[in-house]
């Protein structure tokens, strides 16, 4: 980082200071607005087409705004808080749910089917074309959820494994995939052949859906809290490492093969990761505040944000994939323009 002129070679960026822990951020479906959920209950809607500094909004949630996603069936955003409220933002925020004593930490949206899923303790509330449904209760609090690429299924990670819910037809029985221990993150592979989880045991666990056979990748120094499949489903990346570490899933799968590794050894421990939707790029944020963009094809990476501003807590690609939004636990948001 001491290389002279390094900062000058960084892509242009815009900085917004929210003053509170960024628990989640995401672009709306047009890419014109960035939604940021913060530890002080605020939900910022930042106009990306206008560089003037946004003024702080009134807190939307009492306590912490825990999560935010783009509204899968319209404009603006859906946010969840530890006040047990699920809000739809727009000209005025509208309350979708209010669960006393619960919290909304995990949300997922599927745009093509216009379906929203929100975890409320051991249950999941789903809003789709056929109305509101409640899935569960699951064996424990649901730690994470993800839609299958076509939106026909929703997978829930919990203690003891994952449950795959069939959303259509609605009466189909859910499928359980078991692995002892607590599963904290879950992601469908983009080709829908695999489901991967990060576990409390500092490992990744992956099920091959056709056979139900599973595999375990262990040895991470801390638990893997975020997962990212490369857009072509060839590699599975996770946080908790100092280098980009991608397990190869093309062909017969990763059994007996080492992962690909690349990046900068000195960046710190990876705390956030997000894959580009249409290209082989993976964005990674570190506990030092540094952000890199790696390429699973060329196995190279570039620093796009220097260390500082706390640890990276959230990353989001713009819908077109030309901009990356970074949030940190010290409340800094950077919108990095990657067109050059």
């Amino acid at each position: 980082m001491s290389e002279p002129g390094f900062a000058e070679r960084l892509p242009p960026s815009r900085r917004v200071e929210t003053g509170a822990w960024v628990s989640g951020l995401t672009y709306d479906r047009t890419g014109r607005t960035l939604g940021v959920a913060c530890g002080d209950g605020r939900v910022w809607c930042i106009d990306t087409t206008n560089d003037s500094p946004p003024s702080p909004p009134e807190p939307a949630h009492r306590g912490v705004s825990l999560s935010i996603i783009a509204n899968p069936s319209g404009d603006s955003f859906i946010s969840g808080g530890d006040d047990g409220r699920l809000l739809r933002h727009g000209d005025a925020a509208r309350e979708l749910e209010s669960f006393k004593g619960r919290w909304f930490e995990r949300l997922a949206g599927h745009t093509k089917t216009a379906t929203l899923a929100a975890v409320a303790g051991k249950e999941i509330v789903v809003y789709g074309a056929s109305g509101r449904r409640v899935l569960g209760p699951h064996p424990s609090t649901v730690a994470d959820i993800d839609f299958s690429p076509d939106g026909s299924r929703l997978v829930a990670a919990h203690y003891g494994g994952v449950t795959i819910h069939v959303l259509k037809p609605a009466d189909a029985a859910p499928r359980s995939l078991e692995w002892k221990g607590s599963h904290v993150a879950v992601r469908y592979s983009p080709d829908a052949r695999f489901i991967a989880t990060g576990t409390q045991d500092n490992a990744l666990h992956v099920w091959r859906l056709a056979t139900g056979k599973d595999m375990q990748m262990s040895g991470y120094p801390v638990k893997v809290k975020q997962l990212a499949w490369s857009h072509d489903a060839r590699f599975l990346f996770g946080t908790a490492t100092s280098l980009f570490t991608g397990w190869p899933f093309a062909g017969k799968g990763p059994e007996g093969k080492p992962p690909i590794q690349f990046g900068d050894e000195g960046a710190g421990i990876m705390t956030a990761i997000a894959a580009h939707a249409a290209d082989s790029f993976i964005a990674a944020g570190f506990d030092t505040g540094e952000v890199q963009v790696g390429d699973s094809k060329t196995r190279r990476s570039a620093v796009i944000k220097l260390a500082g501003d706390g640890q990276v807590s959230a990353l989001a690609w713009s819908p077109g994939g030309w901009s990356l939004a970074v949030g940190t636990d010290q409340g800094v948001v950077e919108l990095i323009d990657l067109r050059r």
């Binding site: 509170a20 822990w21 628990s23 530890g39 002080d40 306590g63 912490v64 825990l66 530890d82 919290w103 930490e105 424990s140 609090t141 203690y159 692995w179 002892k180 221990g181 607590s182 576990t199 409390q200 045991d201 490992a203 636990d329």
Partner: peptide
């Protein structure tokens, strides 16, 4: 929550991990 290794000494309170994660964000 027990760990996969079944070691009783590695058993944790999953709800506490979440609560402390939430408090840290305030």
């Amino acid at each position: 929550f027990e760990m996969n290794n079944g070691c009783i000494c590695c058993t944790v309170r999953g709800d506490l991990i979440r609560v402390i994660g939430g408090l840290a964000k305030r």
